[in-house]
């Protein structure tokens, strides 16, 4: 069975933009940057320059960009191991992120985190390596906003695999009951590692699971930046108004499968399924919108070369950054320690 496309007929990829607030060129620029970055990071991993595992975000760029475009600087974000896309969409410093992935001294977390970065400057709390674990943490950030009445919201990105974890269901119940300003963004790419989600869940639409917790849900085509953004903007408005959480199920697909260590990982998904999704590439889709709206192709092409230049500069920065001093491994165990 092919992976189900968005089930909700109300939100089709062909709907006209519902949200005037999204700067399409800026969104395209952000997505192009993520795409160029991820391709380059995979190459750097093959070249043994990047350390640890790389979980590429290629194919899901519309989700990070569509959601982050609906946020303000005061909002909080929680990501996970497939987090470079979220980080870049949020505006995490490209040089520092890259140096971190290279394990260098100028890395965002001094080389301690690799891909599992935190960045207070952009309110990126956590990128957890434990599936589902970040979701209650985001709920906690939402509690802070609720107590302080500062109007901030918390957003957490996760794969549909996280819905297997009990702590996620606990958090859904808690967030609804306590009306937390929390937006849960589930990037449903149909796979949990090598396991197809339909093998292990009673439902392939995880939105129905969220509905069971009485969580308001939005089902969107996760490859449609406009649709993602519209759902995020609506959810953020509700949460900011103190009316509680929302769950966005963004149906999408990984162009590059799951995970890479030393060698590019093999493809194990059905060819027709992959081809079907490649034909629905989120960058192509947004480009189509832009061209239809009269944007000059040259302008868009220039964004690609600009992104490649920017990424190459970040790689050069990371390469020239020194290795951290070994004794720094012992620092910052808790606040107040050296």
């Amino acid at each position: 069975m092919a992976l189900a496309l968005p089930a909700d007929p109300a939100v089709s990829p062909m709907d006209p933009p519902q949200d005037g607030g999204l700067d399409l060129v800026a969104a395209y620029k952000a997505m192009v940057l993520i795409r160029a970055y991820e391709e380059r990071i995979l190459q750097a991993r093959t070249d043994r320059e990047v350390i640890g595992p790389v979980h590429p975000y290629i194919g899901q760029e519309a989700v990070a960009v569509g959601v982050c475009a609906a946020l303000q600087p005061r909002d909080h974000l929680v990501s996970h191991y497939r987090g470079h896309g979220h980080a870049l969409a949020r505006g995490v410093d490209l040089d520092a992120l890259t140096a971190e992935l290279f394990g260098r001294a100028d890395g965002l977390c001094g080389g301690k985190a690799a891909a599992l970065v935190s960045d207070p400057a952009t309110h990126l709390l956590l990128s957890s390596g434990i599936v589902g674990a970040g979701i209650p943490v985001a709920a906690g950030a939402a509690m802070t906003s609720q107590v302080r009445r500062d109007g901030a919201v918390a957003v957490v990105f996760f794969g549909e695999g996280a819905l297997g974890a009990g702590v996620v269901h606990e958090t859904l119940t808690l967030a609804v009951a306590q009306r937390l300003p929390l937006i849960l963004v589930c990037e449903n790419n149909g796979y949990q590692g090598a396991t197809r989600t339909e093998e292990v869940y009673p439902e392939t639409s995880v939105a129905r699971i969220a509905e069971g917790h009485r969580m308001p849900v939005h089902r969107v085509d996760g490859n449609d930046t406009l649709a993602v953004h519209a759902a995020a903007a609506a959810s953020v408005a509700v949460a900011r108004a103190g009316q509680g959480p929302a769950f966005i199920e963004a149906s999408t697909y990984l162009t590059r499968f799951h995970l890479q260590f030393d060698r590019p990982s093999g493809e194990r998904r059905p060819a027709e399924e992959l081809d079907g999704w490649l034909a629905r590439d989120p960058l192509d889709a947004l480009r189509g919108h832009l061209l239809a709206a009269g944007t000059a192709p040259d302008l868009l092409d220039a964004l690609h070369s600009e992104a490649e230049r920017r990424v190459e500069a970040a790689v050069a920065f990371a390469r020239t950054s020194p290795w951290p001093a070994p004794e720094l491994a012992l620092t910052n165990l808790w606040a107040g320690t050296p």
Binding site: I51, G52, G103, P324, A329
Partner: peptide, 16 residues
Amino acid sequence: APEVPVPSSPVLEAQY
């Protein structure tokens, strides 16, 4: 290993 978590960078991890 030292009584601190295991860091990612191989240079930091070496002493572990």
